[in-house]
Nucleic acid binder design. Sequence first.
DNA 1: TTTTTTTGCTTTAAGCCTAAATTATAGGAG
DNA 2: CTCCTATAATTTAGGCTTAAAGCAAAAAAA
Lengths: 158, 158
Amino acid sequence: MNESLTDTNPPTLAGAGTDELRLWVRLLRCAKVGEKLLRRNFEEQFDTTLPRFDVMAVLYREPDGMSMGSLSRALLVSNGNVTSIVRQLQAQGLLQSIPHPQDGRSAIVSLTLAGRAQFVVLAEAHHAWISEIFREVPADRLKQLVEGLGELHTILGA
Amino acid sequence: MNESLTDTNPPTLAGAGTDELRLWVRLLRCAKVGEKLLRRNFEEQFDTTLPRFDVMAVLYREPDGMSMGSLSRALLVSNGNVTSIVRQLQAQGLLQSIPHPQDGRSAIVSLTLAGRAQFVVLAEAHHAWISEIFREVPADRLKQLVEGLGELHTILGA
DNA sequence: TTTTTTTGCTTTAAGCCTAAATTATAGGAG
DNA sequence: CTCCTATAATTTAGGCTTAAAGCAAAAAAA
């Protein structure tokens, strides 16, 4: 029950090995492994990054464009962060920024035609990579995880 | 079946909304939300970071210390990355680096007594935050996710 | 022994990320 | 109209991250 007085091992931490902690560690671990793979693929095959892909993915769903603020909220990243990523995409001609007609502070960013075309290509590759990653996961297990993580996300979002 | 010629909405992407993609998006989303919360807490309450905590967590389990290489492999981060984090912890007196007796290239890093004491405090807070995050998740759902993510991690690791 | 290759780690360049400070515009109170 | 506050975005400082290049020691080869 108690730690031995001559124990040279680390003292047991309160709560170590609980289900919550295990869940968190595994969640983070799986996400990290996947991200590592995607980052490498995006870099090697398209000379781009996951964050840029994320920006394009959000904008693809909004053909009329959106403000920098909405973009950063949709991506769960800080306001200032979006600025530099948008700049990169703009420099590549994949994205355009147009001053808001009513509000002089704001700008509406949207994908260019080239950006939309490029995103379709990227999204296809992205999906193929994800499929490959989860290839060995049984379909019912997949559904179970989707369900469980959906519930988790709802709880976390609230 | 086909896209309308006058459709102003984004064309449907092949594979959009499949279970694999949904799983990946939710996995990443949940991890991101949790990380954001932990980062803020570590910063505000202990003026430290999640990566530093991660290093300490690994070293806590290895009282005899380990090489920089083992450390980076255990954390799934690049070799060069560990260098700067270790330096920070060393500057705070939480970690010590001792030259390897046989191998002049290598060093053995380990937590100092102060580092071990500090880690116990951090780990306790960390666990409390995690518990709070998952407070509303039913115990059986928790177990199911732990199980599913464990399997997923095994598949991803191989 | 001398040379070559490998290995452990650090450094560098580039990008992502945040919080906080700054700038500029918008909108309301007086 | 003027002042004050709120909001949109950028800039700045600091930290994390990687890949690639560099350095020094070890190990292997010649």
